Computed example of a mutant assay.
Amino acid sequence: MHKWNTAVRRGLVSGATSSVLSTVMLAALGQKEVGSLCAPTNVISRWIHGDKAARQSGPSMRYTVPGYLIHHASATFWAILFERYAGSRLDRKAPAGLLSASAATAACAAFADYRLTPRRMRPGYEKHLSTSSLVMVYASFALGLAAGAALVRRR
């Protein structure tokens, strides 16, 4: 149980950093590719609002807030798993191990999001972003995991 408590505590931090960093990337790429900072985050709320969420481009309490909260919860879920299964072997003095573990976690998240998850429950980023942009989003997620993990190990 101790390992799970540590993983949750650390995962809350690395989940937050990965969520924020990947959301910033989603916004930047959304602005570049479809002219909207919020469209890639809004589409995530299709879990609640269906495909109508993919047509929302502006910021809103109805689409942007739930989209971000779902994204944040997902990032935190993956961060807790990352911390539970890789965390005990990570050393902040060995950034290569930290980066490779976070990259592997992001790859697993992408695989789960787009190969294992039913279409209706996928994030939906592909409705607004190119494949190369999706790679950048998941890479920023990995960097956020690594940054958060390094931060909690700094103490």
Rank of each mutant, 00 (worst) to 15 (best):
S100T: 04
A146L: 12
S60I: 05
K93S: 14
P118M: 04
I48M: 12
S132F: 03
I80Y: 10
A96S: 14
Y63W: 15
H2A: 13
V20P: 07
D113G: 11
L37W: 14
S14P: 06
A54D: 15
G144P: 03
A150K: 15
H128E: 07
G11I: 07
L90Y: 13
M121Q: 04
Y85Q: 10
E83F: 06
G124V: 01
Y114D: 12
F82G: 04
S22W: 05
M121E: 07
S18Q: 08
L151Y: 12
S140F: 13
Y68I: 03
A16Y: 11
S57W: 06
S19G: 15
L116F: 14
R84M: 10
T76I: 09
P66R: 02
T117D: 02
L129E: 01
T41L: 13
A147D: 01
S22L: 12
P118K: 06
K127F: 08
V8G: 07
L81Y: 00
G87Q: 05
R92N: 05
T41H: 01
L81F: 10
W78L: 08
T105C: 07
L145S: 07
T64M: 08
R84H: 13
A7I: 10
A39Y: 00
G144A: 02
A106W: 04
N5A: 04
A103G: 11
R153M: 12
T23M: 10
P59G: 03
V34L: 00
A79T: 13
E33P: 11
S19C: 13
Q56M: 11
V65D: 13
P40F: 01
W4H: 09
A107Q: 07
S130D: 08
G35K: 00
R122T: 14
F141H: 15
G35D: 00
F82W: 03
R46G: 12
